[in-house]
Design a protein around this nucleic acid. Structure first.
Lengths: 211, 211
DNA sequence: CCCGCCATAGCCCGGACGGGTGAACCCTGC
DNA sequence: GCAGGGTTCACCCGTCCGGGCTATGGCGGG
């Protein structure tokens, strides 16, 4: 019952979160898994205290991954990695015992807050299904006022991408330099946990950020 | 009342169709427009017999472009460029006088068939709103048995793209060489009229090809 | 039997992308 | 006043993408 496992389809997201977890004593050791199969093998072997799970996990999907973890009888706390707005998946996730969600661009301080407030500190804590309304909510200790989501510029760049525009073309439309567009792109990739523009567009459309 | 105007967000699609139209006498001259603004300016100046219009036109959108053309009083035949399955947009398009749709990867023979069967050959033909059910249907003279759409492999590659996979990763998952994945990618880009993987994923999600 | 489509695969090539980093400006709020 | 976020821009750099082209084998229909 120690350590954290980061399960996400994007290697970039996995590496970043694992690196961030290295600074948090309660989250050592930090391991990563790219697929549901890798995840359940790791959970079985290492009995982690915390699992961070990609809501858009490729393959069998996050819901099935959660179900399998529960099937193992493991009582690790599970927190989804998702963008606010993804109620469809998240609703089902909480009903399967997920604690809440964090954006894929979590930083060290946020992980530390979760470890402090939301983790069993020795006594294995029941994954209470919250007999009351299992309404979805962000993990406590979340971000400052009105952050998360994408900014106006980032949404405009994402929309341009969905129309097949190159960074240079998007820049021309928005009267920005190509370098600026690339900056917005990098940031929105991080926030969405996307490996490239194609996945960013997919997440944006699936979660309703763009249409 | 002569010639064709190709209005599509992707330069690749515009160029290809313009080139194909050069072989069809009834479709000369062939011009192209990247935006609704360029399109209405061209329609006003040249009174084309045919307009091929991107159903996913960036900016004001295809529906608004159609409305503006109709507002000009132009009686050009309008045919949408779309992927089968895009009923939402196409429904509204036909109700605004569009004749039907063609896939963005139309070739010369298909354009010739449209010019032969579907175009006014001298007498300006009423854009009948088809008092009966204005149900959407493909332009007559369509493709051979069971073509159009995407093949199984192309759909698998598209799905991989939507999960942020690189061509090499998709190849590994499907037990294909990266070059083969790239071949499938190139073909599906053509069929969907996409400039890159981001737009291909967007079209795939919007039209329900993938989810 | 041949044509067409699909699936597979390879090669070349230029350009676009994505990551890292640093920096400046403005605005808001504590 | 200072911190923090958003927006803007720049440079470097390695990799991947996307287009063009060719080719082979299997499979089905005319």
């Amino acid at each position: 019952m120690t350590g954290v496992i980061v399960c996400h389809g994007s290697a970039g997201v996995r590496d970043r979160i694992v690196a961030a977890a290295h600074g948090v004593p309660a989250l050592v050791p930090a391991r990563s898994a790219a697929t549901a199969e890798e995840l359940i093998a790791l959970v079985r072997r290492t009995s982690p205290a915390l699992v961070l799970l990609d809501a858009h996990l490729p393959g069998v999907g996050a819901i099935e991954a959660l179900r399998r973890i529960r099937g193992l009888g493991a009582d690790a706390t599970v927190i989804m990695l998702a963008v606010p707005g993804d109620e469809i998946t998240l609703d089902r996730a909480v009903s399967l015992g997920a604690r809440g969600y964090l954006p894929p661009d979590v930083d060290r301080s946020e992980l530390a807050a979760v470890a402090a407030h939301g983790l069993p500190t020795g006594v294995p804590q029941q994954t209470q299904r919250s007999a009351g309304g299992p309404t979805l909510q962000a993990v406590p200790g979340r971000r400052q006022p009105g952050t998360s989501e994408l900014t106006r510029r980032e949404l405009e760049v994402l929309a341009g991408m969905s129309h097949g525009r190159s960074n240079a073309q998007i820049g021309a439309e928005l009267f920005l330099s190509e370098d600026t567009v690339k900056t917005h792109a990098r940031r929105l990739f991080r926030k969405l946990g996307a490996a490239d523009r194609a996945q960013a567009v997919a997440i944006g459309l699936r979660t309703g950020l763009i249409s």
